[in-house]
């Protein structure tokens, strides 16, 4: 019981900087949904039933440009392939969870919770109670996303420029604090370098496809650099 509560709190605490960074985006989403004529129920319904920032922004933008339904759904699907990489990365950690728990927690898999869980797994490999840590992170993120949506919808235009306050810097520095300690082998550095430059070159690609492309390219480079037999240095480090 004590572990449970502690892990719930830890999960929430580690996600705090990311929640702070995501909050303005939730507000902007609510305000954008309002401005584009979505009803309050539909806006909150999207945040609570879909719960995926990038997908929601793209959907609202596409609705505003009168895109047809299959186009919106297909675009949202492609954007979500990033979450599939996250889920696949965590497979070993969830294989002893009961199936209903996996389904429940999978619903809450965001950039933020994945980052917090990754950091925990790197720093305390094999520590028990991951499901509670995950639930703490996910519940915290989810609650604030709903609050932000409601706030944005009801008074979005009355907090002008909130998105320009620069609170997303909290996400950037938190991600840096998670990625850098994970850079151990030469292949990790190569992977990060490729992801970095490729993401900059492809930033203007539509619907975050540059992000997905860069991630896959970087993973491929990491694989090449770490292939046993071709890279004796990596072999030594493994």
């Amino acid at each position: 019981m004590q572990t449970r509560t502690k892990q719930l709190w830890l999960g929430a605490l580690e996600t705090l900087p990311l929640v702070v960074a995501a909050f303005p985006f939730g507000i902007v989403f609510g305000a954008m949904a309002h401005a584009n004529g979505l009803s309050f129920a539909v806006s909150v319904g999207m945040s609570s039933l879909v719960f995926a920032g990038a997908s929601q922004f793209i959907a609202v933008t596409l609705i505003a440009s009168a895109a047809i339904l299959p186009v919106i759904v297909l675009t949202v699907f492609v954007v979500n392939l990033r979450q599939m990489l996250y889920s696949a990365n965590l497979m070993h950690h969830v294989e002893h969870w009961p199936q209903p728990l996996r389904a429940l927690l999978a619903f809450f898999l965001t950039d933020e919770t994945f980052a917090a869980v990754t950091d925990r797994n790197n720093r305390h490999p094999g520590e028990p109670g991951l499901r509670w840590f995950y639930a703490g992170s996910a519940g915290f993120m989810y609650s604030f996303w709903q609050i932000a949506t409601v706030l944005g919808y009801t008074l979005g235009e009355r907090i002008p420029g909130l998105a320009n306050w620069g609170l997303d810097v909290a996400m950037i520095v938190a991600f840096i604090g998670i990625v850098v300690p994970a850079l151990k082998r030469r292949a990790d550095w190569g992977c990060a370098a490729v992801a970095f430059f490729s993401a900059l070159i492809t930033y203007s690609w539509p619907h975050q496809s540059g992000l997905l492309f860069s991630s896959l390219l970087a993973i491929a480079v990491g694989l090449l650099l770490s292939r046993p037999g071709q890279n004796p240095e990596a072999l030594l480090n493994e």
């Binding site: 990033r82 990489l85 998670i178 992977c191 992801a195 990491g222």
Partner: peptide
């Protein structure tokens, strides 16, 4: 399996690059 190990570094670094410099 080996490729999936690179997911956090690859995806989070790509997000960092875009949100920082764009």
């Amino acid at each position: 399996e080996r490729g999936l190990d690179f997911v956090p570094v690859a995806v989070l670094t790509a997000i960092i690059a875009q949100t920082t410099l764009i």
